[in-house]
Nucleic acid binder design. Structure first.
Lengths: 145, 145
DNA sequence: ATCTGTGCAAATAGTTTGCATCCTC
DNA sequence: GAGGATGCAAACTATTTGCACAGAT
């Protein structure tokens, strides 16, 4: 699920957006951005904190909040106790998740038809819709025996 | 958003499902079920606890967990700090949510086309998909000025 | 009578905040 | 040098658990 290939476009974009937004470039924030850049699916704040020993937990949360505000990162609830965060490629395709209720496995998927349906609903709504997320829950093939 | 008309079908079903599942009928659980039965959109555990003064908080959480396990209730993450819970009418239509990122307002919506798209994805997936939820986030008309 | 359900209080887990210090601009 | 960025520890909030007692079957 986790790709080791960094999405340097996103990392690049993230840094410039942060700069434009008036944030200075400190070590903690950069590390969080870099980490999110090489992870394709959701990571919880605690996982990030665990992987980034040198970074304080508070900084992880603060950075995630800022990135979320700039829509560079999206928060997703995958049913576990902690919230997940994953990068959003501006304009690029994004994915949704299927979660196994038995073993907790999370699998990402994409579906153009689903995106179209959501787009349509978004346009009809009285809200100005900026983002969306979809979560399917069920039992994975392995757990299903 | 909150209807005052109890969905007695659901309440009925909930009680029989609970009984079938081997749960005894105690006062706390009944009160939670009744409350969920007359609320059409999501309620947090804390809201339920607040409204049901006589019921212990732990019982609220325990009941919600049991109901969720029986798929009588669905947990939804609406971005706030607490998780929301709302009843699921077996076989009946369900709704999704649009959340205002500015004022927190939650508006439910239904869309057959969206449901179809999700149905299709569910069938294609390697998982045995049992439920799903969709959340749109944006700015409501009022906040948008 | 038995064994589950319930409330209370304590324990956890995740997240946020206060503050002194460090570092970027 | 000034003001944001960071780490640490304390504070909070939501949720879970332990346990003695009440209540359902």
């Amino acid at each position: 699920m986790a790709r080791r290939k960094t999405d340097s476009d996103w990392v690049q974009t993230a840094f410039s957006s942060l700069r434009e937004a008036g944030y200075r470039t400190g070590g903690a924030r950069s590390q969080v951005v870099e980490l999110l850049g090489c992870e394709d699916c959701a990571l919880t704040a605690l996982e990030i904190d665990r992987r980034l020993r040198a970074v304080g937990r508070a900084s992880v949360y603060r950075t995630l909040e800022q990135l979320e505000g700039l829509r560079l990162v999206q928060r997703v609830d995958l049913g576990g106790e902690a919230a997940g965060y994953e990068r959003v490629s501006p304009g690029g395709h994004h994915h949704h998740h299927i979660v196994c209720e038995s073993c907790g496995k999370v699998v990402p998927f994409e579906d153009p038809g689903l995106e179209r349906a959501i787009k349509r609903v978004s346009l009809e709504a009285s809200f100005e819709v900026a983002e969306h997320d979809v979560t399917l829950r069920g039992i994975c093939a392995r757990c299903n025996g």
